[in-house]
Amino acid sequence: MTYPLLSVKNLTKYYKKEGSLFSPPEDEVLALDDVNFDMYEGETLSIVGESGCGKTTLAKLITRLIEPTRGFIFFQGKDLISLNPGEMRKIRRKLQIIFQDPYASLPPRMKVGEIVGEGLEIHGLFKGGKKMELVKRVLGEVGLNAGDMNRYPQEFSGGQRQRINIARALILHPRLVVADEPVSALDVSVKGQIIKLMQDLKENYRFNYIFISHDLTTVEEFSHRVIIMYLGRIVELASTRKLFEKPMHIYTRALISAVPHRKALRNKEKFILEGEVPDPRNPPSGCHFHPRCSFSQDICQKERPFLKDMGNNHLVACHLY
């Protein structure tokens, strides 16, 4: 029996501003509410949802850039939350993150060579010439030139910067890369190139990745499983094929309907959502989705639906099932 590469249990995060001497604590803002899932070696997992669904919080929690309010994260069997700062720093080598904004995520005053090589230095792996050699190789693999080492990030376009980000993450040979909307800020014609690059590198470097996106169409081609999130909770989790063939949650169906000109859905009924995502400071009772759901019943306002297995590991959190 294989045990999961990553296992997330009851993960919950509330953001709150701590009160100080003179100001009382502010309202808690719900970011992530009791999230559970496992991820196995070799799979590409996508997490999809709109703004406020908690996907970026989840990315930062998994890489422990922020601390959870409750819950556990097991990575390669180790409980990440219980690690002390020194142990955590060591494990970061195996656990990398790629940020959405290719402009904000690179230090402005360092040369590309230094940026990409920094990880090696931090972990005391290679220095000097050997380091530069490795940097050159990785840059080549992400489609940049060795000559780019001595240039500054400002000289590169968004897509090229995202390549630098990928190189920086991969030079440490991580096991898991969390990519937080890596292509959302890029132009349409560049998106595909970056996704393809990540796919190719996955073969060579044998890493696994979690791909976070607000756009369901982007993830369809390459992910094995998809998690749909809404306002801090997982509402549906299924293999990509099943999710697109037979979406169960109304929210998932609405997301698929919002994709223009989808052949598969052209003749099926369309779900157009009314309203907007509610305020996370004051989430709706029961099912978070009920104010926007056309099938809402009494129970939806009262009780939170939990994920139910509808067979073949297709999980959905909805009182209709």
Partner: peptide, 25 residues
Amino acid sequence: RDFVQAIRALGASDLRIITRHILPN
């Protein structure tokens, strides 16, 4: 800022983050 978070994610120590990444900026 994202670039500081990215360095943290690489496993850099606080001293390194402060002196090499935040202070120069």
